[in-house]
């Protein structure tokens, strides 16, 4: 999979792309597509992986088309209007039980819970994705540099990584959330999760770099006189990428769990501005929903979290098996 082998004979399938891309770019594209096809061929046979993919697609569709989903539901349920997550329906009691007008009842501020849960998918997924991007960026940078440099610099980076790896994640996040300036907001929760969650990525990337950098194509690049930056970006990174990708998917799962936990404790964005599954559960806890038998209020958002996290876990594990042949059944 080294990008160094990009000289091969003409290929019929790439000819229809000529004119659009330059020759090397077209070749790269062809290789990429070939690799994707091969990966997909293995992935398809992983049953849990496919299940995860389907569940995830469902949640993504609901998140993207949340307003349309609510409109369709309003039409089916013959509601007076299509609710939005912050609309207070004064015509019903607060904390009302499920009814034809409000499928999952209303919360303490007369807001429709079903609508809130549908919209909640948006922020929960968004926070999971962006926080993961932040921690992937940090972890990859630390892992690549530490692994490539080695020696004292690597030692320093690894000790810092250890701090973030060893300390219980929730303790770390609570402290960062308490001390970082600014009130609770989506940006802040993304930063808190991103800054605290990069350590295992750094470890994985570093280990992979160590095994890659001794290979001959890196030696060869060095011999030709390639600079450090070129070697890391063009030769080492592409070889580390697949495992990193699998790790990123699993990190999304953890980030979503982190978001819901922080929001539940009350360190997430406020429920009158942003709706996430975590702060729906926070509202429920504040209203003593379980003590008062309002079970649907707690059960449904929780099941949504489990569904999404499970989907990402299935996909991540399947990708891990695809990219890491040692894990496949022997």
């Amino acid at each position: 999979m080294a990008a160094a082998t990009s000289f091969s004979s003409e290929d019929k399938s790439s000819s229809r792309l000529s004119g659009l891309f330059s020759e090397p770019a077209r070749e790269k594209l062809r290789l990429l597509r070939k690799r994707f096809k091969k990966t997909w061929a293995i992935y398809r046979h992983n049953r849990l992986g496919m299940l995860g993919l389907f569940i995830l697609m469902g949640f993504i569709l609901v998140a993207v088309f949340a307003p349309q989903v609510i409109q369709v539901c309003a039409w089916i349920g013959d509601w007076e209007i299509a609710y939005d997550p912050f609309y207070r329906d004064e015509s019903v009691d607060d904390e009302s039980p499920p009814s034809p007008e409000h499928w999952l009842g209303t919360d303490s501020m007369n807001r429709d819970l079903f609508t809130r849960i549908i919209y909640g998918a948006r922020v929960s997924l968004l926070v999971g994705l962006v926080a993961t991007a932040v921690s992937m960026g940090l972890g990859t940078a630390v892992g690549l540099l530490g692994g490539y440099w080695g020696g004292v610099k690597d030692e320093v980076l690894m000790r810092i990584t250890d701090v973030f790896l060893v300390i219980p994640w929730l303790a770390l996040m609570i402290v960062f959330a308490a001390v970082l300036p600014g009130g609770p907001s989506v940006t802040k929760i993304i930063l808190v999760i991103g800054i605290t969650g990069w350590s295992s990525t750094a470890r994985i990337v570093r280990a992979q770099v160590f095994s890659v950098k001794e290979r001959t194509f890196v030696e060869r690049a060095k011999a030709i006189g390639a600079g450090d930056y070129h070697i890391v970006v063009k030769h080492i990174f592409p070889n580390v990428f697949p495992l990193m990708f699998a790790n990123a998917i699993l990190t999304i799962a953890i980030s979503i769990l982190s978001e819901s936990t922080l929001s539940f404790i009350g360190l997430g964005p406020h429920s009158s501005e942003v709706v996430t599954w975590g702060n729906i559960l926070e509202n429920a806890d504040n209203a003593l929903a379980i003590q008062r038998g309002l079970y649907w209020w707690v059960a449904v958002p929780g099941l949504c979290i489990v569904g999404v996290v499970l989907a990402f876990t299935f996909i991540g594990n399947a990708l891990d098996e695809v990219f890491n042949p040692r894990l496949r059944r022997r």
Binding site: A253, S260, F264, I290, G302, I305, V306, V309, L310
Partner: peptide
């Protein structure tokens, strides 16, 4: 995997 994907606080609430 099912319980791994579950937020512990939510599991605790359900057990309550």
């Amino acid at each position: 995997l099912f319980f791994y994907a579950m937020p512990t606080f939510w599991l605790a609430m359900m057990l309550i």
